[in-house]
Structure formats: structure tokens, C-alpha cells
Design a protein around this nucleic acid. Structure first.
Lengths: 247, 247
DNA sequence: TATTGCGCTTAACATAGGTTAATGAGTTTT
DNA sequence: AAAACTCATTAACCTATGTTAAGCGCAATA
């Protein structure tokens, strides 16, 4: 393993393919922190024709959609190591807003550089594509949660998924992590009312399943939590197609 | 425009990039109908290590997940022109089942051939990637529906989205299409009970919004339907990044 | 140190949608 | 043509979750 510095994206991709020093060098060059976004600001500059992909390096953000009467649905949380705006850049489609939930540090990357990656660095391109595939898998799980799981099950699933993701970029402890968001945001993510989020949280505290106070989550009984929502992390894992590994 | 034969995939991709005759030729070769799957069968052979991507050419299928107590959530309908198993093939992950809802004709494609497409035909690869991006966009809409839309809104959205997709592969009339599935399947897609699907359908019939009998849907007031769920099709459209068009 | 405000908590009440169960209309099987 | 199924339909009743509204605690501001 090389001693080059690692950012969250590299850590994430490295779970999939063992990156060689050259590739790590390229990524480090591409992913230099060069921006800062204050809490509440939009992550993606909405100048249409903006040709920028944003890599989140530190902090939390979310993607959401608002219906005409104000109902909001958060479609995903954006964590360190996640790219934002790839689709907008490649296909000129934006179908949601992205907002910083905390102050964030980011790397703004030219869309052209991403496209070049696809031309010149097939393994890296494949790894990035795998990132998108993982997002889609998480989306699938969210559909299942919202469609068929109860409030308690949804909640268990969310807290476990966040832990898993944060751990894979080195930002979580073994059974705890910082969750710097309000219950209202959790409600808008789980398709519940804020009151019911609170009720459910209380109940789970009482059952010694988890603690969640002051922006800090402790999974007190992760085994039980996993049972409750039949959590499996396989959808977050993967192995590259052999033909692609050896390019 | 060339006079070569078109299958559903070609029609779909052609909305994104104007394919040249050579590319159409490659796709036609790759997408020859070579399989038939009976209603109720799994679309993807579940032999692990199977290295096959399935292109649906005719018929309907769906992806779903079943919770341990039998609750089922359909995560998406698979229509002609849709690829199935790309992620499984590239990353060895399967996180849902895929089942034929009608008898289906398909093209089984070797994963290797898809991978080669990524190496040799960047525009086609980009177009296929765009297909995945579109699926993710639809997934996002589903999350919004399940999380924040009422039964009636969800239903309106589903019927409009299906019409849009079917039209784009030439399998729908201007305001009508065949929907060869049961109300139970609609329920499992919309996260509702079968009884409530029926209730909602009755109400929408009475309001002259749509007809749906004998597997045939007629959108009687598509304008109103669009208002109800603030349907927008922009998430289904897109334009390729300029750098990719001219490769 | 008073004030304001945001986020958390709780209680009382309301409802969209779930459950159970029975009936009917077509279709397939025997 | 009877029996057996599968789907759609309807009614009666139930519950998970939503809504409204009111305190509470703490941090930021004045």
C-alpha cells in the first residue's frame, strides 16, 4: 500500500479495486480541496451550463425535492467521498436540489476532467461508475423502506446504513458516529412527520436499541437493529468485473 | 435516418444521441432476440457467476424485494428496451429479484460484450450509462412518491410515467396503453394495500381522470393527472455531454 | 441577565390507508 | 357444466401515523 495521502473518495473506491500509486496520484490531483460551502447553501452552482462536479470531502449534505405545497422528501444524504452532479454534468439533467447541512469542504472538479477519466482511465471510470451503482442500490433500499417498512424499521435501517457508509470512509467509530442533523430532516428522509420521528426515537431509546442526542448516535444493540429491518450490507459492496480489473 | 431495423433499445438510445448506421449495426447484432421467458419466471439466471445481461425486447417484467414476513415492494417495472443485470454483471451484486409479468422475448448478452462496448464504443457506452442514469432518476421520483405523495398522487404519477416510457419505445398510443398486470402488483409498486388501490382507482374513474379495465389504460384527462402529481418528464430526458458526442 | 429562537418533547385528537371478510364475474380445469 | 381459481369489488372496522398545539431547554443575541 502506498503512503500517499488519502481522501474520502480514494478510501471508498479502494474498497472496490486496489488502486495503484499512479491512480491514487491522479485522484489526489483531481480531488484537491478547493472550495468551502456554508451550511444552508446549495452544493451545486445552479448556473445552467455549469460544468462542475462537486466532490464532498468533509461535512454533510442532502439531495431533496420539494412538492408545490411545500412537502419535502430527502432522497439521499451526501457524505464525504460522494460525488454530486455527475448526472447533471454528463446529461444536462438536474432533477433535485442539493444543500449543505453543515459547513462543507469540497473539491470542485471540471466535468471535462471526469469525461477524460472515462477516456483514459477505464479502471477509475469503472470505480466511479460503481459508486453510482451503489447509490442506485441504496435508492432501491429506500424505496423498500418507504413502501413497505414501518417507522421503526425505516429508522433502524437508516441509522445502520449511515453507520456503514461513514465507516467505509473512516468517519465513524465502531458503533457510533456524529449525525449533525435535526429530527425534521430525518422525518423528511423517512417520509414521516417530525412528531412521529420523535415518538419512534423515544421508543427505540427505551428499548435500548440506540441513543441519539446532541448530534451523536450510539448503536447500543446493532444486532437487534439489524434483525428489525433485516439489514444487509451486500448491496453496498461489490467486486469489479474481471475484464475490468485487468485493463 | 438509416433504414436498419430498430429494436426497443435502439429507439430509446436514439432519443439521446443520433446513432450512426455503424452503431445501429453493432447494437442490432448484440441485441438479437435469442430467448423467451414464460410469465412468472425469473428474468436473470441466478446461477452466480452468470455473466449475462438481459435486454427485454417484448413483454413486462418487474424488480422486487421481499421482506422476511412476505411484504413485497416492487422497485421498478422493466419495459421493452430496458437492460437487466448490468450491475450484477459488472459488480457482482444482486440486490433484488426480477420476474417476468407476461411472457417475454429477450436478448441475452454476454457481459463481456458489454464490457467491450465500454472499451471500444464510448458513445454507445455513454448512451447505456445514460440509461442507468435515467433509471436512477425514476428511482428518485419513486422515493418522492412513496415518501410524500398521497395514494391518488402516486397513482397518477405511475400511470403517466409508464405512458411516457412506453411511448418512447413505441409501444403506447397517444393517450392509452396496455398494462397487463393486476391491481395487486400496482399495490406492491405504490406501497399501498390492494384494497386501497381499488378504492383509489374507482375514485379516479369517477372523476374521469382515467379508465383502467381489462389490462388497458386510457388517460382521459392527462392534463389534470399531471397537475395532481406535478408530473414532469425532464428527469427522463437529457442531452449528452458535448465532449462525449464528438468522440 | 433578559430575550429570542430553534429544536425536542408530549398530549389530545384526526385521518389516510390497512385488514378482514364476503360477494361476484370471468376463466381455466376436470 | 360443475368445480376451482384468480381478480376485482365493496363494506365494516381498525391502527399507524399525521396534525395541532403547547411547553421546555438551551444556545445565540442583545
Amino acid at each position: 500500500m502506498s503512503k500517499l495521502p488519502r481522501n474520502a473518495l480514494i478510501q471508498k473506491l479502494n474498497h472496490l479495486v486496489a488502486l495503484d500509486p499512479l491512480e491514487i496520484g491522479i485522484l489526489n490531483e483531481l480531488c484537491k480541496e478547493n472550495g468551502y460551502i456554508a451550511k444552508g447553501q446549495s452544493l451545486t452552482t445552479h448556473d445552467f451550463d455549469s460544468d462542475i462536479v462537486t466532490l464532498l470531502l468533509g461535512g454533510w449534505a442532502c439531495r431533496y425535492k420539494i412538492l408545490n405545497d411545500g412537502r419535502r422528501q430527502i432522497t439521499s444524504f451526501v457524505l464525504p467521498g460522494d460525488l454530486s452532479g455527475v448526472r447533471a454534468c454528463l446529461f444536462g439533467v438536474t432533477d433535485y436540489e442539493t444543500e449543505a447541512l453543515t459547513d462543507c469542504s469540497v473539491a470542485n472538479i471540471y466535468g471535462t476532467d471526469i469525461v477524460n477519466l472515462f477516456k483514459d482511465q477505464p479502471r477509475l471510470a469503472a470505480a466511479i461508475t460503481w459508486g453510482s451503482a451503489r447509490e442506485e442500490a441504496m435508492m432501491t433500499e429506500r424505496v423498500v423502506s418507504l413502501g413497505r417498512r414501518t417507522a421503526k424499521e425505516r429508522m433502524a435501517h437508516l441509522f445502520l446504513e449511515l453507520h456503514w457508509r461513514l465507516e467505509s470512509v473512516g468517519v465513524a467509530e465502531r458503533l457510533a458516529y456524529e449525525l449533525p442533523i435535526t429530527q425534521e430532516l430525518i422525518a423528511d428522509c423517512l417520509g414521516l412527520s417530525i412528531v412521529h420521528v420523535n415518538r419512534t426515537l423515544q421508543a427505540m431509546r427505551k428499548d435500548k436499541l440506540l441513543e441519539y442526542r446532541n448530534g451523536y448516535v450510539v448503536l447500543k444493540n446493532s444486532k437487534k437493529l439489524k434483525q428489525i429491518c433485516s439489514f444487509a450490507s451486500n448491496h453496498l459492496e461489490g467486486a469489479l468485473h474481471p475484464d475490468l480489473v485487468d485493463i
